[in-house]
């Protein structure tokens, strides 16, 4: 009976190829598992907190963001109290989707939901956070 193995490949070569194909798959699976929904709060480009959006939370404060209060409701985070004059960040609707953000310019504070692989590069959102003027 004639052997059906490709003439230039040995068993070990095939194992290598399979292994190389499995590595990216493994990374992809691990990355998918890490995608717990969180919001990130930064002040002056420094991350001060990661907030889980899995559980509702009534008004809470975060160390490093003095004067601000946040809430989490139905998987969305909002700023409900801010020390700035214009208070525009409080008028911003809660955010729940990857790529969305709320910005408070006077406090240089940003609440954002990190972009996931499947998320768009940019969200053009008429209702997104308003810069405090």
């Amino acid at each position: 009976m004639q052997k059906t193995t490709l003439p230039f490949l040995r068993t070990l070569d095939i194992l290598w190829i399979v292994l190389l194909l499995l590595i990216p798959l493994l990374f992809w699976i691990l990355q998918m598992q890490e995608k717990a929904t969180v919001a990130v709060i930064t002040v002056e480009n420094r991350c001060i907190a990661e907030i889980s959006l899995a559980q509702d939370r009534s008004a809470f404060s975060v160390n490093g963001a003095e004067g601000y209060l946040f809430t989490v409701s139905d998987g969305a985070i909002a700023i409900v109290q801010a020390p700035c004059d214009s208070q525009i960040c409080i008028q911003s609707p809660p955010i729940a989707y990857a790529g969305q953000s709320i910005v408070c310019l006077p406090g240089k504070l940003i609440v954002s939901i990190p972009t996931a692989d499947h998320a768009p590069d940019v969200i053009l959102d008429a209702e997104r956070s308003s810069p405090d003027a």
């Binding site: 609707p93 790529g99 768009p120 590069d121 940019v122 969200i123 053009l124 959102d125 008429a126 209702e127 997104r128």
Partner: peptide
């Protein structure tokens, strides 16, 4: 390509 999500200005 770049992907840009266009949100509904009257909703969420």
């Amino acid at each position: 390509p770049f992907s840009i999500q266009i949100s509904d200005p009257n909703g969420t």
